[in-house]
Write a protein that binds this DNA or RNA. Structure first.
Lengths: 199, 199
DNA sequence: CAAGTTACAAGTTTTGACATCTGTTACCCG
DNA sequence: CGGGTAACAGATGTCAAAACTTGTAACTTG
């Protein structure tokens, strides 16, 4: 017999996110998800080809939610690009710190996908790089950053701030001095980009 | 009955290194070490207070061996500091890449100690930071780098090159483009340090 | 007594039988 | 047929018993 509530992809995603949050990425099974929805686990497989795909969808949705907050900062033309670059790099760190604190299970799920070289992770990085490129291009356009290639420069800045954006350093983000360290690195990088010195 | 060969600390260290290389850090036991030496495992405990201490001694010795190669580069006053800084940062990466390739088991042992916040790891980082500080101080002295505080600057440069020196990124060091990425970061950092531009 | 031994407690890892999970297939229903 | 079920094979995970490891202590010997 068919389930009372019609089963659709978004209901499955919501249930999966809930299960993932409650059980964590290691213990969450698709049988759990199906049980929560009152269906057999085979029904879930009608909508998602694999457990991996299901987890990727959930994680992608979750990442996209906070990506938008960063996009707002990246696109805020009221703030001069130099300052925006600094704010954005701090915001990336702050958002990830908050996610670890508030949503450790989903953060762990993201970490597993990143370790498995899932496209969810690479796409997320590409997203962030795009935002960073936009900020730097703005700076190049108004003359506050003297550079050749905004995209190449974004990659370099991203690499130079790996300690503050790469998952592998998540444990170090607990350190209280981490924000100050990022600030120092920002200052040196901005100097290198010939940003006008503030003091 | 006492062992024929007199058992001393360095013989134990050599045997441990051999066992560590053969079995890897997870499987190597002090009973294995004792067996290789033809003694009971309690004899090993006469010379080292714990398995942890034994492993730290082996790893420290191993790290100290390559530290010296880097020290030669850091102290080579024939090379201008700006170029020496770049070479040294590349050498740090190259040395670690080589260690992973040639000595994966001992590298893994080092990784475990770093994860456990052993003094072996923090001392090694302090060592490298000292070498970096010396290069930067040389640059400050001859005017090729315009900076306030060599030690603070070294920390910033080290943080900005975390992707190329921090264990957490070891997997990415396989990537063929990694050297070029480091070069780009170096160029931006040197620009920020007001190093004279070469081209 | 220095340098080793055997013996042993406490903790950890391996093992192997058993249960659960993933993904597929054949089937059912409105 | 779209959307569901039940049944299944093979992979993976669980759990308790056995084996091994760590570290200590009491003992032996030149």
């Amino acid at each position: 017999m068919p389930a009372r509530t019609p089963l659709d992809a978004s209901a499955i995603l919501a249930a999966t996110e809930e299960i993932l949050r409650r059980h964590g990425p290691d213990k969450a099974t698709v049988v759990d998800v199906a049980r929560a929805l009152g269906v057999s686990h085979a029904a879930v497989y009608k909508h998602f080809p694999s457990k991996q795909a299901l987890r990727e969808s959930v994680t992608r949705r979750w990442l996209d939610r906070n990506r938008d907050a960063l996009a707002v900062i990246a696109a805020d033309s009221a703030v001069p690009p130099v300052q925006r670059l600094r704010s954005w790099l701090h915001a990336v760190l702050a958002v990830k710190q908050a996610k670890i604190r508030e949503d450790p299970e989903l953060f762990a799920a993201y970490g597993m996908l990143a370790a498995a070289h899932s496209s969810v992770a690479t796409d997320h990085v590409a997203d962030l790089l795009g935002q960073l490129t936009a900020i730097i291009a703005d700076g190049a356009a108004d003359g506050s950053l003297r550079i050749d290639d905004a995209e190449a420069t974004a990659r370099v800045v991203f690499n130079a701030t790996a300690k503050f954006n790469h998952l592998a350093h998540a444990a170090e983000w607990q350190n209280p001095g981490i924000g100050a360290e990022l600030d120092e690195v920002c200052s040196l990088l901005l100097e290198g980009l010939h940003a006008p010195t503030s003091p």
